[in-house]
Design a protein around this nucleic acid. Sequence first.
DNA 1: TAGATTGTTAATCGATTAACAATC
DNA 2: TAGATTGTTAATCGATTAACAATC
Lengths: 218, 218
Amino acid sequence: MTDEHKPEVSSEPPHRLPPGTAARLSCYLHILMQSAKAGRTFISSQALSEHARVNPTQIRRDLTASGAFGRRGVGYEIDSLIGSIRRIIGAAEVRELALIGAGNLGISIAGCDIYREHGFRITAIFDTDPAKTGVSVAGVPVQPVSEVGDTVGERGIAAAVIAVPAAYAQEAADRLFGNGVRVVLNYSGGLVKAPPGAAVHDINPAEGLLKAMHLCGA
Amino acid sequence: MTDEHKPEVSSEPPHRLPPGTAARLSCYLHILMQSAKAGRTFISSQALSEHARVNPTQIRRDLTASGAFGRRGVGYEIDSLIGSIRRIIGAAEVRELALIGAGNLGISIAGCDIYREHGFRITAIFDTDPAKTGVSVAGVPVQPVSEVGDTVGERGIAAAVIAVPAAYAQEAADRLFGNGVRVVLNYSGGLVKAPPGAAVHDINPAEGLLKAMHLCGA
DNA sequence: TAGATTGTTAATCGATTAACAATC
DNA sequence: TAGATTGTTAATCGATTAACAATC
């Protein structure tokens, strides 16, 4: 009955975004980056809504919650909005990312702008194929998988992406988890068990396809 | 006030799954396929829950809604469950999929098992690079992009995947929408406007990474 | 029989939407 | 001033969770 949790008092800022909110903010951020590239400087919740496929009221609430504010009658200044969202989802700081697997999928992931937009930088790449060792992918030299533990441990890398065949996914994940990685994005299609304190997110593109089919009634 | 909608009476089965349900079923289906491959024949809602990261009660409700039934004290028979889910999400019939872009990303998409698990078959691939024309990717010959309209129109393909550079995404989408495609899965990172009656789903891997970070408190 | 797990209800929780005054 | 859009409230809706009897 006494107030036993909440050990720290002030050092915990509003970093406790509701579950779905972070995902939506990520989506807004990407749209804003693309709009900025296209030369726009202001955007309304209505215009954001059309691309994000989220209700405008929901968007305004999300933006307010992330500390941004717009101008009534005008909309939101894109650059300032990008800054606010980056701050609230932690994308303002650079976060290192390890990548296991330098095949077609790995190479395309390494070249993907959206990670960079969110503050993630792929700074270590690994592959089992000796022919790939030393080759540079998106400016990062490929290392043998045997070096995952040392590299990730020494550099304190906390998050990683797995892009290996399904059968090797757990093995790759274990190397990561065993050396301090706590977050894994799994493209492999294989099932991966995470130890306590760690989390895996499995990429499933069929979900998105089904969702879009649902939207258009097909 | 009169009952004006609902034009047909009986031919509309319970195909109106709630929005989130189809996505969860897709996720279960993938886990079940992997478990079957590993030689398991039965699975409990608890075991499914650990991989899907969804509450066991929610899972039992979803499965019941999809027409599956388990055995109390035992669990669900995996093969039968796969059948039920496939039927309810429409994955029992084969659905053709066009792919635009045969770069690293496109090649990895064409080889991805998860589409096949969900009944999707990539049966047409296009690329602008003449050097790629005629080359076979995952058993499908690459055609020039100029043939998108004819091929998609003639074969009545309703869904497609875009894996081109962001700057060409709208152009690729327009070729598809102009020829009867109503559902597009967009990997490009570019913003795509869909005409009325069509829907786009944008792949954003950073969302998944943020979600996993949220889960493990990082 | 004993143990385990389903199917289902009831209660809670959070997300979504509609509406509108405030104000740029 | 007139038009547009935000910020915010209140109401609705659907998803999630806890609990437990039914039953394999």
